[in-house]
Simulated assay, not measured.
Amino acid sequence: MKAISLIISILFLTSCHINDPRPEIHRAKVNIVGNTICVTIPDTKNENISLLSIDEIGKSNSEVEKQFTIENAPQLYADKCLPNFGFSFEPGRLYVFSINTIRIKDNHTAVNGNSYGVTFSVWVDKGQLNVKDIN
C-alpha cells in the first residue's frame, strides 16, 4: 500500500506541468552593437511580439510598454536586435527588457508563444558603452 501511495504521489508531482498553457520563459541576450544596446533572443519558432516592455529598475516613470494585435505583431528573428521604440538607456542604471510572443496560425488565430527577458546594467568605460546581463 505504501508503494502505491508513493507511485501515485510521484505521478502527481511530475505531471503537474503537462498541458500548462502558460508560455515558457527563456533568457534573452544583451550586448552592444554599433554603440547601441541590442537585445536578442537565441532562437524563435515562428513567433511574433504580443507585448514588449522595458523598465528602469527603481524609476517607475521610466518605462515603455507596447502591446500588439495579430494584425500588427512584429515578426521575431533569432539573433536580430529587438525594437526598443526609442527608449533611452542611461549609463549607471539597471533595466528589465521582456517580451511575450504569440504564434499566428494560418486561420488568423493566435496561440501563446514564449516569454523572453533579460535584466542588465549599463555603464560607460573609457568612452565605450557597456552592458552586463545580471540575471
Score class of each variant (00 low, 15 high):
F12V: 12
W123C: 06
V111G: 09
I57S: 03
N48P: 02
D43S: 12
N48I: 03
D125Q: 15
I37W: 01
M1W: 12
E71M: 11
H17G: 10
I4H: 07
I32K: 02
K29G: 13
Y77Q: 14
L94A: 12
V64C: 00
L76R: 01
P83K: 09
T40P: 06
N19F: 14
S98T: 05
S9M: 12
K45R: 09
Y77V: 14
D43I: 13
T69I: 12
I37Q: 00
N100F: 09
S50G: 07
S121G: 09
Q75M: 12
H26D: 05
I10N: 10
Q75G: 05
C16M: 14
R27L: 12
I134N: 01
S9P: 05
V122Q: 04
K80R: 15
T101K: 00
R103F: 04
C81L: 03
P21L: 10
Y77H: 15
I104N: 05
K66Y: 08
V131Q: 02
A73T: 06
S50R: 12
L6S: 12
D43R: 13
N84M: 02
S53D: 07
F85P: 01
K2V: 13
R93I: 04
E65V: 11
T40G: 07
S98P: 00
K59V: 15
L82F: 03
V111K: 13
E90H: 13
P83E: 10
I37P: 00
L76T: 03
V64M: 00
H17T: 13
F87V: 01
D20W: 11
I10W: 09
P74M: 06
S15A: 10
E56I: 06
E65N: 08
G34Q: 04
N31L: 15
I4E: 08
V64R: 00
N114K: 06
G34K: 04
D125I: 12
T101G: 01
Y95R: 02
G86R: 04
H108W: 13
P91F: 05
T36L: 12
I25T: 09
I4A: 11
G92F: 09
N72L: 09
N35R: 14
L76F: 05
A3G: 09
E47F: 01
I54S: 00
T119K: 05
I134C: 01
S62K: 15
V33L: 07
L52M: 13
I70E: 11
R103A: 05
T14Y: 11
I57R: 02
I8E: 07
N35E: 14
T14L: 15
E65R: 10
N48H: 14
D133E: 11
E63W: 08
T44W: 02
I41V: 15
N112T: 09
H26K: 13
L94G: 06
N46F: 04
K66C: 06
I104S: 07
I37G: 02
G117F: 00
A28K: 01
F89M: 07
T119A: 11
C16W: 10
S53K: 06
M1K: 14
A73E: 07
L52T: 01
S62G: 05
A73K: 05
S60H: 10
N19P: 08
I102N: 03
D20G: 08
P21V: 11
F120W: 02
D55F: 08
R22T: 15
G113I: 00
N46C: 00
T14K: 11
